[in-house]
């Protein structure tokens, strides 16, 4: 018999990240014939708890007196929660903080640890089948965990949040924060200005630029398009590495995972590590001067041209289209 625990590290109000982690835990627990416990690290209010129950938590543990994120304090609290509910399958969110503490918690619990997974299935004898993309998304590795504790982080946007049952309730437990003297301290947190659009993770439209843009200034063309379409600007690693846009705009294996309705890739070749980040996009559209660029293998629509020629005309055509339809 397995006990499934989903660890949440709220960054404010209940968000899609929490919904995804709970949903993954809930369906796994159902397959294993178990119930889902949720552990909340950091401050949270009653409405947060109600959301946890609505998404399928059966019980919930809070840690009293656990302030803002600190890796050692949060790790110790996660271990205490795991012990208190005798969890042997522990899910973490694939956020910066989640990925920071999951491996160490697993290490100290003697657990197998697998991060950045996209598939998770359990069976009635307690075996887990875990799918993890490898080789930059060029292959999938399917792993079987038979016995013993397991720590898993699901890739963001690889789980569609399940149906909510508003009004569902469950047991709430509280444990005290572990006493320790932490060796790290977050001195300051700076939010990067990433333009006027919605958060990349939530954007319905993303206009993304790569090395083909050539320089920082050329990103204004993408911003113009994004404004016109109510979207946000994203980028490939190559564009971020050049310093053309902040690293927070990077989409891909080691950047954001996004799921817009429209993903317009401009001057992006479509390396597998980039495509990994847009697997959840509904329609990919590519503008690239090289007809052989791999991005065209995943795009629904493609234009083979220099962006310098196409984008100004696209702005005009879109503006006209908007005028006709308003």
């Amino acid at each position: 018999m397995r006990n499934v625990l989903a660890i949440l590290i709220p960054a404010g109000a209940f968000s899609r990240t929490e919904a995804e982690t709970i949903t993954a835990g809930k369906s796994l627990a159902a397959q294993l014939g178990a119930d889902l416990s949720v552990g909340i690290l950091g401050p949270s209010d009653d409405s947060f708890a109600r959301e946890c129950f609505a998404f399928g938590a059966k019980s919930l543990t809070r840690v009293e007196g656990l302030a803002a994120y600190q890796s050692e304090a949060y790790s110790a609290a996660a271990q205490q929660i795991a012990a208190s509910v005798a969890a042997d399958v522990i899910l973490f969110p694939s956020t910066t903080y989640g990925l920071e503490i999951a491996p160490g918690v697993g290490y100290r619990l003697g657990a197998a640890v697998i991060l950045d997974c996209v598939g998770l299935i359990g069976d009635s004898s307690g075996n887990l089948t875990i799918t993890k993309p490898v080789y930059g998304g060029k292959a999938n590795s399917e792993l079987i965990a038979r016995q013993g504790p397991v720590v898993i982080a699901m890739r963001m946007r690889s789980v569609a949040p399940g149906e909510k049952q508003d009004g569902a309730t469950g047991e709430i437990n509280t444990i005290p924060a572990p006493a320790l003297s932490p060796r790290t301290q977050i001195l300051e947190h700076t939010t990067e200005d990433t333009g006027s659009g919605p958060k990349l993770e939530d954007a319905r439209v993303i206009i993304s630029g790569g090395r083909g843009l050539g320089n920082k200034e050329n990103f204004v063309h993408l911003e113009e398009l994004a404004r016109l379409l109510g979207g946000s600007v994203g980028a490939s690693r190559a564009a971020c590495d050049q310093g053309w846009v902040p690293a927070t705009l990077q989409i891909g294996q080691t950047g954001k995972k996004v799921a817009p309705d429209l993903y317009l890739a401009v001057g992006i070749s479509g390396a597998s590590q980039h495509l990994v980040g847009i697997a959840g996009a509904r329609h990919i559209v590519a503008i690239n001067k090289d007809a052989k660029a791999p991005i065209f293998q995943v795009a629904a629509l493609g234009v083979v041209d220099e962006w310098q020629a196409l984008l100004p005309k696209l702005v005009v055509a879109l503006t006209e289209h908007k005028a006709r339809n308003s």
Partner: peptide, 14 residues
């Protein structure tokens, strides 16, 4: 360690 107990049942190109 515990990760050596994981069995790779399949590696495939999606």
């Amino acid at each position: 360690g515990p990760n050596s107990k994981l069995e790779q049942s399949r590696l495939y190109v999606p």
